[in-house]
């Protein structure tokens, strides 16, 4: 890479300092904050930054995973390993009622499935443990509609997102006061880009699930999307057969809803090079956002992250 007048490392340092500042503010100002850990790359960075923010003390708040029970198996193994290595206070939230009813990505539309297994599970988890602030890895570059999202994003009673109640944000000063029933979502990575996340992972040598890197994996192609057959719950259609292809995932979620991309990038450096040349929106590979024009907006109003 050619030498730039402003080295990338300097930009990362500034983003890191901002995120750490947000973390410390959150830990000090709220009664019972929680880090929402979704096991993906953003969560891995988020977790790493949290460790940095409070060192040499351990993480001063618990970590919660919203488990839909349809995550890649590797993700769950990775989660439990990291929790053990780092001594995390890991809480797991599931929509038990929906699980008992057998809700799955194959039985329900992706929108309804997401609402039940993610949105409802998240709300229930927050209520069950009494969290008043939930820290998440959302970034403003993910989607155009996120450009107006706050770093401290207020939720009304019932986790409702009311655009009119969002607080203006000045300087580094945040109004973290809550009135009865309100809670906060906090996004320390708001000003990061996807490339920043990867370059930071590379620089800091942050562990991530290997699903992000290319490897021969069993996939089927459906409607032009490559889906990995991660376990035997995947109902193969007539004549369908999993093929081994060298693929990686750009975002990780529920395996039946995560589109793979064909790639040979098996190191983070290769992956960054591939990203720099392709330049396609991150959410393009995510199946849940596709339904309906502004579905991200409506999901947010319901309490989706």
């Amino acid at each position: 890479m050619t030498e730039l007048a402003v080295p990338y490392i300097a930009v990362l340092d500034e983003l890191e300092a901002e995120a750490i500042h947000i973390y410390r503010e959150t830990a000090a100002a709220f009664r019972n904050p929680v880090l929402l850990y979704s096991i993906g790359k953003d969560s891995s960075v988020l977790l790493h930054l949290a460790l940095k923010a409070f060192a040499p003390a351990p993480l001063p708040f618990p970590v919660m995973h919203i488990d839909t029970t349809w995550k890649f198996r590797e993700m769950i193994e990775f989660r439990d390993l990291r929790a053990e290595q780092l001594g995390l206070d890991l809480r797991i939230a599931k929509n038990e009622a929906a699980i008992a009813e057998g809700v799955s990505p194959f039985t329900h539309g992706t929108h309804e499935y997401t609402r039940l297994m993610k949105t409802v599970a998240l709300r229930e988890g927050i209520d069950k443990f009494g969290f008043d602030a939930a820290i998440g890895g959302a970034r403003r570059d993910e989607e155009r509609s996120r450009a107006k999202e706050r770093i401290f994003s207020l939720r009304e009673p019932g986790h409702r997102w009311d655009p009119r109640k969002q607080r203006p944000e000045f300087w580094r000063t945040a109004n973290t006061t809550l009135s009865e029933g309100q809670s906060m979502r906090v996004f320390p990575l708001s000003n990061w880009t996807e490339l920043d996340v990867w370059r930071y992972i590379e620089r800091e040598v942050i562990p991530i699930p290997s699903l992000y890197l290319a490897k021969p994996r069993p996939v089927v192609e459906r409607d032009g999307v490559l889906i990995m057959v991660d376990d035997d719950r995947f109902p193969l259609r007539e004549g369908e057969q999993a093929q081994m292809r060298s693929v990686r995932f750009r975002t990780l979620g529920c395996y039946p809803l995560s589109g793979a991309v064909e790639s040979t990038a098996d190191t983070i450096a290769d992956l960054i090079a591939e990203m720099e040349s392709s330049n396609v929106s991150e959410r393009a590979g995510r199946l849940i956002d596709g339904e309906g024009g502004s579905s991200m907006e409506s999901k947010k109003a319901e309490g989706y992250f």
Partner: peptide, 29 residues
């Protein structure tokens, strides 16, 4: 490239500040 979504307009948040990033050729953000 910078216009908000239709739904957003209905919710009345087009009047809100939008935050975007730009990468300059010299590496500055």
């Amino acid at each position: 490239l910078t216009d908000g979504l239709e739904a957003e307009r209905e919710q009345g948040i087009t009047i809100d500040v939008a935050y975007r990033h730009m990468n300059l050729p010299n590496g500055r953000r």
